[in-house]
Amino acid sequence: MAERDWKECIKSLKGVVLDMCGVLYDSGEGGGVPIPGSVEAVKRIKASDLQLRFCTNETQATREKFVAKLKRMGFDISVSEVFSPAPAALAILKERNLRPHLLVYDDVLPEFEDIDKTDPNCVVIGDAADKFSYQNLNDAFRVLIQLEKPVLFSLGRGRYYKETDGLKLDVGVYMKALEYACDVEAEVVGKPAPMFFQSALTDMGIQPQEALMIGDDLINDVGGAQNCGMRGLQVRTGKYRPSDERHPTVTADGYVDNLAEAVDIILKYRGQ
């Protein structure tokens, strides 16, 4: 039934928002590999009358380097089409005059180059990957616990993602650890925060009900988009697990084997 619903909404669509890792490519050693059919699928959306944006919780590189990597894989994509958490967090820090202690991947540090980091009064945690150690987490914990009112920002809240050599813990796990240790609730910047999806919609100049999100993460992509009023489609690539289709609280508007199949269906129903 859900499947029929999403196909019925195709005709009124004005824009598509794509998750990147697990939809366009699988990450891993050497930067990752494109998922078969995805390079072509992005080209086909761009050739249609639909608008296209990308929403990623990627925080292991600056947006520029990240987009350059995808271009090398063959994707037709530009920096201005990509929404990622680090630039969004930087804007919030500046607006609220906060000085962050950063627990993020080295390659994303340039995004925070021009902000005061002395005597920190908040912590920003991103997917630091192999930089996550007891020592680094403890340093972040000590900054938080000595603040009268601890402020913790998390760049996304994903549980895990898939790399070519297996599933890896994502930033949400370390965010939860710090939340529990300091008895605080993190402010999430990135998916599934509604503000993050909304910024992509505003950029396209369309309403939530006119947009479809396609992602491999049931909670953050599909659930997050649905909470924002968009439709959410889950691809059976990336971190997808069969049990996602029986999740107790989040049900996708539809499931497709991969991005190529989603684009086939969308374009067929639009008569293109």
Partner: peptide, 17 residues
């Protein structure tokens, strides 16, 4: 000084899984 106990890491693994 203060140091993280096992609870935060257990909580993280609970969340992940």
């Amino acid at each position: 000084g203060l140091a993280l106990g096992p609870g935060p890491f257990v909580t993280g693994l609970e969340y992940a899984t």
